[in-house]
């Protein structure tokens, strides 16, 4: 028991110290790489002969889609950390990843729609991939809603962890069924991206943007974890202060036991 307590105590401490040192560097690095990616994407890469300038939307759309999935993977890993290993940072990591993932999923949907209007002639197509991402977004919203619904952070973390893992099991099923549904209702004429091989002149901006935005997402995740740790610290200090205040108002012999029981 003492080791587990120390483990719980030491890890966030070390994390706070380490992250405080790393965070500015990561922020700077992600800014530099993203800026380079933007330069490549907007200025030094050619327009596609078929899609014209709209191909440049891909340099945001594809990294956003990748991050939508990657952050869900981070959440699922953290959920395992919460439920199985009871790692004290896992709750925090889960909570910090959710809004970032939801934001990138939304960005993926918006840019996909902006690409679809000139290419497909409509803002939204019930295309298999778009629809799967929409369902992913709905799952993200559910997770965010559950975080807001339960007040106690530990209890909320366990509930969200279960939901996240159920979603993790469900996402491939959703993908499969949406694909199936899509082939059943074959859309009339839709320009597909799959066939086209990507030229190196487009691969580089895509790659750079993906790395830049991934670094950005990791920076935001780390910063979110720091905020959440501070928030929990404030919460526990407030609770302790309230305990102490309550204890002061009680007669002496009762104080220890009742305050201890009340601290839950």
């Amino acid at each position: 028991m003492p080791t587990s307590f120390l483990w719980g105590l030491a890890n966030p401490t070390r994390f706070m110290a380490l992250s405080a040192r790393i965070l500015p560097w990561m922020a700077a690095l992600s800014a530099v790489v993203t800026a380079a990616g933007l330069y490549l994407a907007l200025f030094s890469s050619p327009a596609d002969y078929q899609q014209g300038e709209t191909v440049r939307i891909m340099y945001i759309h594809v990294p956003a889609a990748w991050l939508a999935l990657a952050l869900y993977a981070i959440m699922s890993l953290s959920a395992l950390g919460t439920l199985v290993w009871r790692h004290p940072l896992a709750d925090v990591s889960q909570k910090a990843a959710a809004p970032i993932g939801a934001a990138f999923t939304l960005l993926c949907l918006v840019t996909g729609s902006l690409w679809g209007k000139p290419m497909w002639g409509t803002w939204w197509v019930w295309d298999a991939r778009l629809t799967s991402v929409l369902v992913l977004f709905l799952i993200y919203l559910g997770i965010l809603a559950l975080w807001r619904a339960i007040e106690d952070p530990g209890q909320a973390a366990r509930a969200v962890a279960i939901l996240t893992l159920v979603g993790f099991v469900n996402i491939p099923i959703v993908k499969f069924s949406v694909d199936w549904w899509n082939t059943l209702h074959q859309p009339a004429s839709v320009i597909r991206m799959d066939g086209a091989t990507i030229d190196a002149s487009m691969l580089w901006p895509l790659f750079t943007m993906a790395i830049g935005l991934t670094l950005l997402a990791l920076t935001l995740h780390m910063s979110g974890m720091r905020s959440e740790i501070l928030a929990r610290r404030a919460r526990s200090l407030t609770l302790k202060a309230a305990d102490r205040a309550a204890e002061r108002q009680r007669p002496l012999p009762l104080s220890a036991g009742s305050a201890g029981a009340g601290s839950a």
Partner: peptide
């Protein structure tokens, strides 16, 4: 997941409806 929440009805729907999509399909 929402058993202990006082107003679980709406959030329950938000949580589970996306997961019901494959069954519906």
């Amino acid at each position: 997941l929402t058993a202990s929440l006082p107003r679980g009805g709406l959030i329950l729907a938000v949580l589970v409806l996306p997961l019901m999509i494959p069954t519906l399909i």
